[in-house]
Simulated assay, not measured.
Amino acid sequence: MRISDSQFTNTMLTGMAKSNTELSTLLQQMYTGEKITKPSDDPIATIKLMGLEKTQAEIGQYKTNSESVKSGYQLYETRIDSVVEGLQSTNELLLWGLNGTMSQEDRSGIVIELESLRESMVSTFNAKNSQGSYMFSGTATDQKPYTLKTDGTVIPNTEVNDSTRETAIGDGLAMQNNMTLEDVDANDIFEMLNTAIKELSEPTPDLSALRGAHDKSLASLYTASSAQAYAGSQINNIDRMIGTHTDTELFAAKLTDQLNALSYDEASLKLDNFVSALEATQKTFAQISSLSLFNQL
C-alpha cells in the first residue's frame, strides 16, 4: 500500500500532537503533585476521590459539632460544680441550724449565708454560654430562668422548659447538647432554701421543717452530683468520638494520597522518556520531510 506525503505528514503531526498533550499533562501533574488533573485522567479514581472528599467534609463537620458540644458540657460541668459546692455548704449550715440551743444571733448569721447561697444559685442557673444563650432554659434559650426580687423572692420564668436539644456528632448519631433546670433540681433547691431561711428567721424555728429542708438538700446534692457526673461522662464519650473521627480522617487522607499523590521518581523517569521520544520523532520527521527525488540524482 502506498502512503502519500500528506498522509505521512498528518500521521506524524497527529502523533507528535498526542505526545505533546501527554507531556503537558505530565508537567501539570508534576506542578500540582497530583496524578489526576481532570476527571478523564482516571474516571474510576475520580469517583473514589469524590467520595473520600465528601467523607472528609462530613467528618470535619462532625468534629466541629463534637468540639462545640464538648465545650458546652465543660461549661455545664463547671456551673454544676458550683451548685454542688453550694449544696454542701447548705447541708453544713442546716446541720448547724438544727442545733436547738443556738441563739437568735447565731441563726441570723446562718440566714445571711443561706441568702448569699440563694443569690449565687440564681446567678448560676441564669448563666449564659459563649453564644449568649441561657444554659438551663431548655429550648427557650432566650429566656432567663429566674428573677431575684429585692426581698429575696425567686420568681421562676414560666417560658422556660425542660426540653432537650441534639447535635449530630457522627453518621446517624446525635447527642444531647444541653442540660435543664430539672437535671439539677433547681426548683427544689430554691424551695428548700426558702424554707430554711424562713424557719431560721423565726424566734422559734420549726425543727421538723428544718430537718425536712436538710433532707431535701441531701436529695438535691445527689441529683446535682449525678448531673455533674453525667456531664463528665458526656465529655469522655465525645473525646472517644473525636478520636474515632480523627482515625477515619487520617485513613481517608491516606487513601486519597494513594489514589492521587504523584510519585516524582516515576514522573521524572517518564518525563525523560517522553522528551527523548519526542525529540527523536521530531528529528526523524524533519529528516524524512526534507527528502526528495533530487537527493538521488
Rank of each mutant, 00 (worst) to 15 (best):
N65C: 02
K70A: 08
G97E: 06
N91Q: 12
E105F: 11
E105P: 01
W96C: 04
V84W: 00
W96T: 15
S108H: 11
L93Q: 03
M102T: 13
Q88L: 12
R79S: 15
N99H: 09
N65K: 00
L98K: 07
T78H: 10
L93R: 07
G72Y: 05
G109S: 14
V83Y: 06
M102E: 08
L94Q: 06
Q74Y: 00
Q74N: 13
T90G: 01
G86T: 07
E77I: 05
E77L: 05
Q74T: 13
N91D: 12
E92L: 07
Q104N: 11
D81A: 12
S103I: 01
S103P: 09
G97L: 01
Q88W: 04
E67S: 14
V83A: 06
Y73K: 04
S82A: 11
G109T: 14
R107K: 13
N99L: 06
S66H: 00
I80D: 11
S71N: 08
K70Y: 08
S108W: 00
I80T: 03
S66N: 00
E92N: 12
S66L: 07
G86H: 06
I110Y: 05
T101F: 08
R107E: 13
G109H: 10
T78K: 13
T78Q: 14
N91C: 09
G97A: 07
I110G: 13
V84C: 07
I80H: 10
S108F: 07
G86W: 08
S71P: 07
S89G: 05
L93F: 04
N91A: 15
R107Q: 10
K70D: 05
S82M: 13
Q88H: 12
L87F: 02
L93I: 03
T90I: 13
L98H: 09
V83F: 05
M102Y: 09
S71I: 02
S108R: 14
N99W: 08
Q88A: 08
W96S: 14
G97S: 06
E67R: 00
E92S: 14
Q88Y: 03
G97H: 01
K70M: 14
V69G: 10
E77F: 13
L75G: 05
Q74K: 13
R107P: 10
S82Y: 05
T101L: 12
G100D: 13
M102V: 03
E85V: 03
N99Y: 05
G100R: 00
G97R: 02
N65R: 11
G86R: 10
M102D: 08
V84R: 04
L75Y: 07
D106G: 01
G72L: 01
N91H: 12
L98F: 01
L94A: 12
E105D: 15
V83T: 07
I110H: 04
L93S: 07
L87S: 07
Q104K: 08
D81S: 15
I110R: 03
R79A: 13
L87Q: 04
S103M: 05
G72I: 02
L95W: 01
S103D: 05
Q74M: 12
Y76K: 10
N65L: 03
G109M: 10
S68E: 09
L98I: 07
E92T: 14
Y76H: 08
L87I: 08
E77V: 08
L87M: 13
S68M: 10
K70G: 09
G109I: 04
S82I: 06
I80L: 03
T90N: 04
Y73G: 04
S71L: 02
R107H: 04
I80C: 09
E105L: 15
Q104E: 09
